[in-house]
Amino acid sequence: MTMVDEAWGLEAKRVFYRYEVDETHKVLALAGVDFEVSQGEFVVVLGPNGSGKSTLAKHFNALLLPDDGDVWIFGMNTKDSESTWEIRRSAGMVFQNPDNQLVATVVEEDVAFGPENLGVKPQDIRELVANALEAVGMEAFNRHAPHHLSGGQKQRVAIAGILAMKPKCIILDEPTAMLDPAGREEVMKTIKGLNEEMGITIIHITHFMDEALYADRVIVMNEGQIVMQGTPKTVFGQSHIISQIGLDVPPVGKLSQELCLAGINIDPGALTVDELVDELCQLKSGI
């Protein structure tokens, strides 16, 4: 069966995956992950290095297949080799290093790479490329060489390259790890826009805690398992678990929690500057 069925969303069922360190040694990267994403969601996956989040991401793109368990992408099982290309088309993937995923020497040629692989007619490719570049705000750079772009711009081109394949979902494996703050913001705003305006499902993997604030749902992974999930508020509210596995609560979240501990009557889950300012000012007018 190679039909995209949107109603299905993405699903990982008791997924186990081991990778070989050397001939005698195998490490359990995923230890029974159960995970469901419905169409249109914005999910952020957090976790320390080696927690299995990248491994999980690659399962959603059929780049890795589970040793045990199943991964379903819009109703297609990743183990069914006939569905592989349709899975990769409908659940596109953006990687960490902005340099190592651009193939061509000109931006528009690179964006065309995916549709070309799918055998789309030249005339239609032009349109797909133009639309994709516009969606990420890079249309003015269509004839530029990738190596002259900033990190954030390169990642937006990479996202456009996926968009040109008309995906239902984009999986981003630490796309901001190598960017400066301006580049990170560019990328985050771009994917937030794609999620809101085009209804594209986003699974965003990151080390930066503040990026979790964009999410509808945050998944926290540790040692190959999902240890926590919920809204950013509930997840960062459990600060002891967060710090136990070596992650951080964003500074404003920390401040809200400390103020609560100091006996101030505000929501300890305030995570952004504006939220906390509002909380504090309400407090004043309440008296």
Partner: peptide
């Protein structure tokens, strides 16, 4: 610290 996780 570029590219490291929070603990790193």
């Amino acid at each position: 610290t570029a590219g490291l996780d929070p603990r790193g």
